[in-house]
């Protein structure tokens, strides 16, 4: 079954016809040529496909494109302003927050979404006092980023990069 949908992807309005079975991830990569979100596990477990959906970080492999008709999607590619990387991207570069780079666009989108959640005062599993503003220490960063796996194990530098970007 096909359906016509419109998405705003990295600031551009894109209209396309999709089979209802198409995930948002496959629509972006296979139909729109937006390849910064990566297909890792395709079951929401690795975080490589993370994008910002109406400003919130989500796994694009577990949501159907047809269910996101009208949504605003930001991928890692759309975070930069022209040639100027987003502060989180710059911090990943400076701290060498990757090795092979496959998980990086998902890590970056997840970090950007996560920092907004902290700014909004959202607690995490390791937040001691649920009623106080969370203080983003390394334990908090690790917990909040646990939905993004890195097979190369660049976690130490990923945490450093996010710590700097948060400042």
């Amino acid at each position: 079954m096909d359906a016509e949908i419109t998405l705003r992807v990295d600031g551009q309005r894109r209209t396309l016809s999709v089979d209802t079975r198409t995930t948002l991830l496959d629509a972006l990569r296979e139909r729109l040529g937006v390849i910064s979100p990566k297909k890792g596990c395709d079951h929401g477990q690795c975080g490589a496909c993370t994008v910002l959906l109406d400003g919130r970080r989500v796994t694009s492999c577990l949501t159907l494109a047809v269910a996101q008709d009208g949504a605003e999607v930001t991928t890692a590619e759309g975070l930069s302003e022209g040639d100027r990387p987003h502060p989180v991207q710059q911090a990943f570069l400076e701290h060498d927050g990757f090795q092979c780079g496959y998980c990086t666009p998902g890590q970056v989108c997840s970090a950007v979404g996560m920092l907004d959640e902290v700014k909004a005062g959202w607690p995490s599993h390791v937040t001691e006092n649920l009623e106080e503003e969370p203080d983003l220490d390394d334990e908090e960063i690790r917990e909040r980023m646990s939905g993004n796996l890195c097979r190369c194990g660049a976690y130490t530098n990923i945490v450093s990069a996010i710590r700097e970007a948060a400042e």
């Binding site: 929401g44 975080g47 959906l53």
Partner: peptide
Amino acid sequence: LLAGASGQLRNL
């Protein structure tokens, strides 16, 4: 709720 799934999944 905070002990469940990941940040990305909890947003969905």
